[in-house]
Computed example of a mutant assay.
Amino acid sequence: MKQGVVVDMVVLGEPLVEFSADRALSEAGTFHLSFSGDALNASVTAAAQGARVALVTRVGVDEFGARLIRFAAERGVDTRWMARDEGSTGAYAVGADPSGERAFAYFRHGSAASHMGPEDVDRSPVADARVVLLGGITAAISDSCAQAVRHAAKAASGRVVYDPNFRSRLTTPEAAAAVLRDVAPHAALVKISAPGDSGALLGLTEPHEIARACLDLGAGSVAVTLGEGGVLLAEGDATPVRVPAFPAAEVVDQTGAGDSFAGTLAAWLARGESLTAAVRAGTAAASISLGGRGGTGRVATRDQVEAVLG
Rank of each mutant, 00 (worst) to 15 (best):
9 M>Y: 03
29 G>P: 04
38 D>I: 06
19 F>N: 05
23 R>C: 05
39 A>G: 02
37 G>V: 03
18 E>T: 07
7 V>C: 06
24 A>E: 10
29 G>Y: 07
26 S>V: 13
31 F>M: 08
18 E>Q: 12
33 L>I: 12
20 S>V: 10
39 A>L: 06
10 V>G: 01
17 V>E: 01
25 L>E: 02
31 F>R: 04
16 L>Q: 03
9 M>P: 02
36 S>G: 13
30 T>F: 15
16 L>W: 03
38 D>C: 13
19 F>S: 05
12 L>V: 11
36 S>C: 07
29 G>R: 14
12 L>P: 00
24 A>G: 11
9 M>I: 07
36 S>T: 06
28 A>D: 02
6 V>R: 13
16 L>S: 05
9 M>C: 09
20 S>D: 10
23 R>K: 11
19 F>L: 15
11 V>Q: 05
11 V>W: 06
31 F>Q: 00
20 S>W: 02
5 V>Y: 05
32 H>Y: 11
26 S>E: 15
11 V>H: 02
18 E>H: 07
16 L>C: 08
34 S>I: 02
36 S>A: 14
19 F>G: 04
5 V>Q: 08
28 A>T: 07
26 S>G: 15
25 L>G: 06
27 E>A: 15
38 D>T: 14
7 V>S: 05
20 S>K: 09
8 D>A: 09
20 S>R: 10
19 F>W: 14
22 D>H: 14
13 G>A: 07
15 P>M: 09
12 L>H: 03
29 G>V: 11
36 S>E: 01
20 S>Q: 11
24 A>K: 03
17 V>H: 05
24 A>L: 03
24 A>I: 05
8 D>R: 08
10 V>T: 04
39 A>H: 04
11 V>R: 04
6 V>F: 11
6 V>C: 12
30 T>Y: 13
5 V>D: 12
35 F>M: 06
32 H>P: 03
6 V>Q: 13
28 A>V: 09
25 L>T: 05
5 V>P: 00
27 E>G: 11
21 A>Q: 00
29 G>K: 13
10 V>P: 00
5 V>N: 07
15 P>A: 09
9 M>T: 04
15 P>T: 07
13 G>N: 05
34 S>N: 06
19 F>P: 01
15 P>S: 11
29 G>S: 11
17 V>C: 04
28 A>M: 08
16 L>T: 00
34 S>Q: 05
9 M>H: 03
29 G>D: 12
23 R>S: 14
15 P>W: 09
13 G>L: 06
37 G>Y: 04
27 E>C: 13
37 G>P: 00
19 F>Y: 15
39 A>R: 03
8 D>E: 11
22 D>C: 12
22 D>Q: 13
26 S>W: 08
18 E>P: 07
5 V>M: 11
